[in-house]
């Protein structure tokens, strides 16, 4: 049985803000299905009582003094944007009026 369906992949693409239609959709469904079918082999491994590892270093809550430090200039940051009017980033209109 297929792990993923076109409907599931369409929903995931919507969440990921990627357009996926027609042949690209069916090809992606087939590829993801083959990969996930392989990945499913994990289900056979007993993991009862095993703690998940999200991070390998025994580090937690790395803090520094709450003191201001130099940062990038607003102007320099805005210059990286494809559309900016320092000190603002410009985006398409979101409110009609």
């Amino acid at each position: 049985m297929a792990v993923v369906t076109p409907q599931i992949v369409e929903q995931v693409a919507l969440l990921a803000r990627l357009r996926l239609e027609g042949e690209a959709l069916s090809a992606t469904v087939a590829q993801l299905d083959r990969i996930l079918e392989y990945v499913k082999r994990l289900q056979a491994i007993p993991t009862e009582g095993v703690e998940p590892t999200s991070h390998v270093l025994p580090l937690s809550n790395v803090m520094r003094a709450d003191a201001p430090q130099p940062s990038l200039a607003q102007e320099a940051v805005c210059r990286m944007s494809p559309s900016a009017q320092p000190p603002f980033f410009k985006v398409p209109k979101v409110i009609e009026g």
């Binding site: 969440l15 990627l18 993801l32 491994i45 993991t47 703690e51 998940p52 590892t53």
Partner: peptide, 29 residues
């Protein structure tokens, strides 16, 4: 695009435990 979709899928509601959480546990092993 393929990896973004795969990653979004394994993190999405309903699949998180079967994939992501399981993966993190086997990572411990």
């Amino acid at each position: 695009r393929r990896r973004i979709l795969l990653g979004t899928y394994v993190l999405s509601q309903g699949y998180y435990e079967a994939y992501y959480l399981k993966g993190m546990k086997v990572r411990t092993l």
